[in-house]
Nucleic acid binder design. Structure first.
Length: 328
DNA sequence: TTCCAGGTAGTCG
DNA sequence: CGACTACCTGGA
């Protein structure tokens, strides 16, 4: 079944830059496949697989967003639109946010560099959790490639005219994946072909020492940690719960809550955000990551997540990042 | 070749 | 607690 429709920019507040949003390295998921100025990804809509293809008409960010949804099941346009509005944060009022940025002279320069950048939220919270764990101490290029690899190896595949797409595997599937070559080999016991290639294990996806974290996190989500309940908890309770997962420290926990669960008050602090905040607000002193986190949450309130996103992207594009490099 | 990338877990004082 | 360090991997 195929559904096509468009969303007028009049139906959300403020600009949207799809390309910027999708490719800004947010740990919700890897970038969507880009083909011919349209973006594609397989998502779940009403628990059914659905290939989304979307882009601005004539690649003009001010024009309608054109959307095509294809699914083996019957899916309503309304459900598709609801999913897209969530993933691309179309219900967030960026005009309101830009007024907030303008009030702080430290933040106002970010607007020009980030015009239309929105939170790129998870279409699968579990994928976001594993992505965030994989991103720790790792380049964006590498963790995104790992996630794509994981989907191809253990996700459910669907074939469309525009290519093959895969879901992210469930916690149950991930909890049973071999950690490394040795474990993969052991599972085959004694009937191994001579030309056997070890590639259906987690470390072969390039996640390195995080393989152990990922499998154990999947097991905990499978058994004791209920993501549905997590979504209903207040922030600190949810933070205390999710940080119990192996490989999840404060930065990753805040990323999961921001991108995976849409908690805008999250302020994930990595080394760059720490340096940027120090540079802008505390030029004479050095803060601890925890102090930067508290500063961000108190100072930026419900916009903390966006400020983090904008500061990071701004610093990266403006050259501020380079000037802050190697101080350690 | 050596270094570093959007941190975390483990150890030690 | 706070400070310190090892850690997979691959691109520059």
């Amino acid at each position: 079944m195929i559904t096509e429709f468009s969303i007028s920019p009049k139906r959300f507040k403020g600009p949207l830059n799809l390309n910027l949003t999708i490719n800004s390295g947010q740990t919700s998921q890897p970038p969507w496949k880009n083909s011919d100025s349209y973006f594609q990804e397989l998502i779940q809509v009403d628990s059914s697989p659905c290939l989304i293809q979307m882009g601005h008409k004539d690649s003009d960010p001010r024009s309608n967003i054109e959307i095509r949804a294809e699914s083996p099941e019957n899916i309503s346009k309304k459900s598709v639109e609801r999913s897209i509005r969530i993933i691309f944060s179309l219900d967030h009022d960026l005009n309101h946010f830009y007024r907030f940025l303008t009030e702080d002279s430290k933040l106002s320069p970010t607007i020009d560099f980030c015009h239309g950048l929105r939170l790129f939220k998870a279409h699968d919270p579990f994928e976001c959790i594993i992505s965030s764990i994989s991103s720790a101490n790792c380049s964006i290029l590498r963790w995104t490639r790992s996630i794509v690899d994981i989907k191809r190896k253990w996700g459910d595949g669907y074939r469309f005219n525009s290519g093959d797409f895969y879901t992210f595997p469930t916690p149950l599937v991930m909890s049973e994946v071999p950690e490394h070559d040795l474990e993969e080999m052991q599972r085959h016991e004694d009937h191994l072909p001579d030309d056997f290639i070890f590639d259906r294990n987690l470390q072969a996806c390039g996640v390195g020492y995080r393989a152990k974290y990922i499998i154990n996190a999947a097991r905990m989500i499978q058994s004791e940690i209920d993501l549905v309940k997590l979504a209903r908890m207040n922030y600190e309770k949810a933070f205390d719960t999710i940080i119990e997962l192996p490989g999840v420290g404060p930065k990753v926990a805040d990323c999961i809550l921001l991108y995976g669960f849409g908690r805008g008050q999250a302020f994930p602090v990595d080394v760059w955000i720490k340096r940027i905040i120090e540079k802008l607000y505390f030029p004479k002193e050095e803060l601890k990551p925890q102090e930067v986190r508290e500063f961000g949450m108190e100072h930026y309130g419900k916009w903390a997540g966006y400020v983090q996103l904008y500061l990071f992207h701004y610093a990266r594009e403006s050259g501020l990042l380079e000037s802050l490099r190697k101080k350690k």
